[in-house]
């Protein structure tokens, strides 16, 4: 976990619009990624990318974009389209892991159509679009659980717009809560390694498996490991201060990472599941934590 700087694994996280899109505890996602990297001897550098900053795709290994107030979202949308668009597209096509939450998710789809006024143009990474149906349609607010890769992911959602997927693959299936639009049971969207979701609360602290998955993807991509082909969970290889050369290709990126003591994380995860009546899943989550 220490010393040997030259051999140390390093990842760089680009945090898009940290000053504008920071409404829903997005700091928790960054803290989680940072800490989970540090505990495994990986250095995670966080670089804020504000309005006007260019996005050079080869400088980053991981990107995060959060949600914000409507007032602050419009200049962001413009900047995303005009300044960062090309870099972001290149990064995504090159399989960089990207996590986009709430407003960030909407901005990566085709457009956001408010109840009144003109559409806000998005980047079109996800073949999806968002419509706000006016003040009479209730906001989607509350705890939410989705199933992702056979596991649960929990969070809190709070969005007025409803997102509809075209050909985009959803991140998961809604078990409890509203999801993309409260109609079709989908939540979030995936394109290559870009993940859009409405789940915050923050998302990553209570979902350590998803956090590790993103870190694993970034490591795999940066250190030349084989592209992910399946999501089975073979027994993990331990990565703790080891050099890139020692790594061998694996299928599930999270198996690159040394398991941590995540009992508290999974208890928080299970507490949400139990509130929504998912007792079986809660028990499974705690068992997984004990097994690790």
């Amino acid at each position: 976990m220490h010393g040997r700087n030259e051999a140390r694994l390093t990842l760089t996280l680009g945090h898009l619009y940290p000053d504008q899109l920071n409404l829903y505890g997005d700091r928790g996602n960054i803290l989680t990624l940072k800490r989970r990297c540090e505990l495994r001897g990986i250095e995670l550098r966080v670089v804020g990318l504000g309005i006007g900053d260019a996005l050079a795709p080869d400088e980053y290994d991981l990107l995060f974009i959060g949600g914000g107030q409507d007032k602050e979202q419009a200049p962001v949308a413009q900047d995303l389209f005009e300044t960062k668009g090309i870099g972001l597209w290149a990064a995504i096509e090159d399989d960089m892991p990207v996590l986009a939450v709430c407003g960030g998710y909407q901005l990566l789809a085709h457009y956001y159509r408010p109840a009144e006024g003109p559409d806000m143009k998005g980047l079109g990474v996800f073949d999806a679009w968002t419509v706000h149906k006016g003040p009479r349609t209730p906001r989607c607010i509350g705890d939410v659980v989705i199933s992702w890769n056979g596991m649960t992911v929990v969070g809190f959602e709070n969005h007025g717009g409803r997102t509809y997927l075209g050909t985009a693959r959803p991140l998961g299936k809604v078990l409890k809560g509203h999801g993309n639009n409260a109609e079709d049971g989908t939540e979030g969207a995936v394109y290559r390694n870009a993940y859009g979701t409405y789940l915050h609360g923050s998302l990553l602290p209570k979902n350590p498996h998803f956090a590790d998955y993103l870190i694993g993807l970034a490591l795999q991509r940066k250190y030349g490991l084989r592209r992910l082909t399946s999501l089975s969970m073979p027994p993990g290889e331990i990565l703790n201060g080891s050099t890139p050369a020692q790594l061998t290709p694996v299928d599930d990126p999270t198996t690159l990472l040394r398991p941590l003591d995540d009992r508290l994380e999974w208890q928080a995860h299970a507490a949400i599941l139990e509130r929504l009546g998912l007792y079986e899943e809660a028990a499974a989550a705690l068992r997984r934590a004990e097994a690790a």
Partner: peptide, 9 residues
């Protein structure tokens, strides 16, 4: 407030 994500701030 139902949303407690603010504790991360």
């Amino acid at each position: 407030g139902r949303d407690v994500s603010w504790i991360w701030d």
